[in-house]
Every structure is written in structure tokens, then in C-alpha cells.
């Protein structure tokens, strides 16, 4: 199975991540586990963005919408479970991850389907702006929902339950995040290499030509957009659980920007690079924030250097040439 340098690099990364909690305990730095969980969750969202940004060439500036929606679905379901009162008098709340996480994925992908259906009628700068506008609408919608905390966000009393394991344990939660990320990466890896993936790449390269070949490109792009929304929704649902908090910050346009930075740092159209980008961005942030509030001052030049000199980002530097075929 392991044939390429890229696969070796990915497996090595997985091995490092698998022993990380053990290593963190060994050096007595338990907080590293919660930090690493946040990184994995952000990586999941960044990978989902790379699917449409890197492979589809769809510069969505509203990916935080699906991230935040995923978080709020978990938060709102837990809120109604606590109140013992059904949502709209119809949907009962739940504090079970096996219900809440799939619900978050479903709602986020439906939202992506709706937003994508309208946004994908445009392209280029218009697409960037319309996805941004939709995401801001979602942001202000949740800020105005006073029942669910408005500006302050929605606090959960505890993480969701999961049969057989205790998600309140940070190490257990870390492995849940790692499993979710690995599963989504495996899925995306097959996806981008499949016939569907070829069509998505073709749309990035030359959409007019795709139409001339007889492809109805809109449906393929919309499907990719919805799958990406589902991935971001799962990430958001995990973050809300991790922090026991769904906040409007998850929906803010700066979150969309952060996810884009992760993808670009790691290398667009590489999937695994987005994981690397998440590590670098959040790592730099926590490291430098200890010294200065102006950590962006360091990040900016790093980003510029990567864009100028590394064609496929950091992952390209590690894993070698493109496997675009």
C-alpha cells in the first residue's frame, strides 16, 4: 500500500499524532492534548475547505458558516436536552454524540447545498463575495438569537455522551478527533482520485472546456461544496463539544480567513497539507502569543514566503511533486 513519499509522510504524521498524548503525559505537559485536539479539529475544517478551494478552485470565503452551524447544532440540541423542551415543539434535544454529530453534519451540508446552489451561479470575485455575504448573514442570524446566547454564545453543561467511552476525558476526546480527521482524509483521498475528483479538478483548470466536453459542471461543483460543508460541520460539532461552547466567533469571517490561511500554508490541493497548515497556524499563534500580541506580524511574512516560493506549500516541500494526473 505504501508506495509514494507522500503516503510515507502521511503515515509518519499519523504515527506521531497517535503517540502524542502518551508523549505529552510523559513530559508532564497535559495541556498539549487539548491544544492538539483543537488543531486536529481545525485541520478537519481546513481539509474540507481544501477539497473545494485546492481541488475545485472554488475560493469560498464563507466556510466558517458551515463550521459554526455544526457547532450550534450540537449546542442547541444539548440546550433543548437540558431544558427538556423540543426545538420548535418538534425536534427533541439530545446530549448523545452519536445523534448530535450526524445531525450537525446533515444540517451543515444542507446549508452548504442551499448557499452553494445560489453562490455557484457566479464565479471568480463574485463567488468570493457572495460566499462571504452568506456567511455573514448566518453570523448575524446566530448573534440575534437571544435564546441561544446571542453575542455571548451558547454554553453546554457538559460534552455529549458516547456509548462505551467517556468524552469528558481529554485524551479520549483527542482520539475521537484524530479518528474523525483520519477518516475524513481517507474519504477525501479517494474522492479526489475518483472520476468525480477528476471532474472537480477539470472545473478548476478550465471550466469552459469541461462544458464543451459535455459535463454539466454545476451539479459536480455543488456536490463538492456540500461535501466540504459536511466536513466543516463535523469539525464545528467537535469543537463545540471540546470547548463545551458554541460561539459566534466560529461563524465570523475571520474564521473563514484562518481556514484559508491554513490551506494555503500547507499547500492547496494537497489535503494533508491543510493538517500541516493547521498545526503551523495554531502552533505559531500559541507560541508567539506568549511573547507578543502582534503575532500576526510574524505570520504575515511566513505566509508571503510560502506563497512566493513553495508551489504546493509546506506539504509540497515535505512530500514532493504533485500527483495530479
Amino acid at each position: 500500500m505504501v508506495e509514494t513519499r507522500e503516503q510515507r509522510a502521511a503515515l509518519l504524521g499519523l504515527a506521531v499524532l497517535a503517540i502524542l498524548p502518551w508523549a505529552a503525559d510523559a513530559i508532564g505537559q497535559g495541556f498539549v492534548i487539548t491544544l492538539a485536539s483543537r488543531v486536529l479539529i481545525n485541520a478537519l475544517a481546513a481539509v474540507s475547505l481544501d477539497l473545494i478551494l485546492g481541488f475545485g478552485g472554488l475560493v469560498s470565503f464563507g466556510h466558517a458558516a458551515f463550521f459554526g452551524i455544526g457547532g450550534y447544532v450540537v449546542g442547541i440540541l444539548a440546550f433543548h436536552a437540558g431544558e427538556g423542551e423540543a426545538l420548535f415543539g418538534l425536534v427533541p434535544g439530545t446530549d448523545q454524540a452519536l445523534i448530535a454529530l450526524p445531525a450537525a453534519v446533515a444540517v451543515a451540508s444542507l446549508a452548504a447545498l442551499a448557499i452553494g446552489a445560489l453562490s455557484l451561479r457566479t464565479s471568480g470575485v463574485h463567488f468570493i463575495m457572495i460566499t462571504l455575504a452568506f456567511a455573514q448573514m448566518v453570523y448575524f442570524l446566530f448573534v440575534s438569537l437571544k435564546t441561544y446566547g446571542g453575542d455571548d454564545g451558547l454554553i453546554m453543561s457538559r460534552r455529549d455522551g458516547f456509548p462505551g467511552i467517556d468524552l469528558r476525558d481529554n485524551t479520549v476526546f483527542y482520539y475521537l478527533c484524530l479518528a474523525a480527521l483520519a477518516a475524513f482524509l481517507a474519504l477525501c483521498d479517494r474522492l479526489v482520485g475518483s472520476r468525480f475528483g477528476m471532474v472537480i479538478r477539470g472545473c478548476r483548470e478550465n471550466e469552459r472546456r469541461m462544458a464543451a466536453l459535455g459535463y454539466a459542471t454545476y451539479g459536480y461543483k455543488l456536490t463538492a461544496f456540500a461535501i466540504a460543508g459536511a466536513g466543516a460541520g463535523l469539525a464545528g460539532a467537535l469543537l463545540a463539544n471540546h470547548d463545551k461552547f458554541a460561539s459566534p466567533d466560529m461563524l465570523h469571517w475571520t474564521k473563514s480567513g484562518e481556514l484559508m490561511v491554513m490551506v494555503i500554508l500547507g499547500g492547496m490541493g494537497t489535503l494533508y497539507g491543510a493538517v500541516l497548515g493547521a498545526f503551523l497556524l495554531i502552533g505559531l499563534e500559541s507560541l508567539l502569543a506568549a511573547f507578543t500580541d502582534h503575532w500576526m506580524f510574524v505570520l504575515g511574512p511566513v505566509l508571503i514566503l510560502v506563497i512566493l516560493f513553495a508551489d504546493r506549500g509546506l506539504w509540497g516541500a515535505l512530500a514532493g511533486a504533485s500527483r495530479d494526473g
Binding site: 479517494r190 482520485g193 468525480f196 475528483g197 477528476m198 479538478r201 478550465n206 459536480y220 495530479d324
Partner: peptide, 30 residues
């Protein structure tokens, strides 16, 4: 009007693919 980032083979393969029904096939490696 070609797909500049794909290989020559990839370019023609994507054209061949267009003749073989819809491409909502997500798993096997093209």
C-alpha cells in the same frame, strides 16, 4: 483550451470519461 495542470494523459482521459455516463462516482481510482 486544455487543462494545463493535468498531464497529457489526464487531459484525454477526462475527455474519454465524458462519454462514459455521469461522473458521480466517488470511490474507485480514475
Amino acid at each position: 483550451s486544455i487543462f494545463p495542470g493535468l498531464s497529457a494523459l489526464g487531459n484525454v482521459a477526462i475527455a474519454v470519461q465524458a462519454t462514459q455516463g455521469n461522473s458521480y462516482r466517488f470511490w474507485s481510482r480514475a
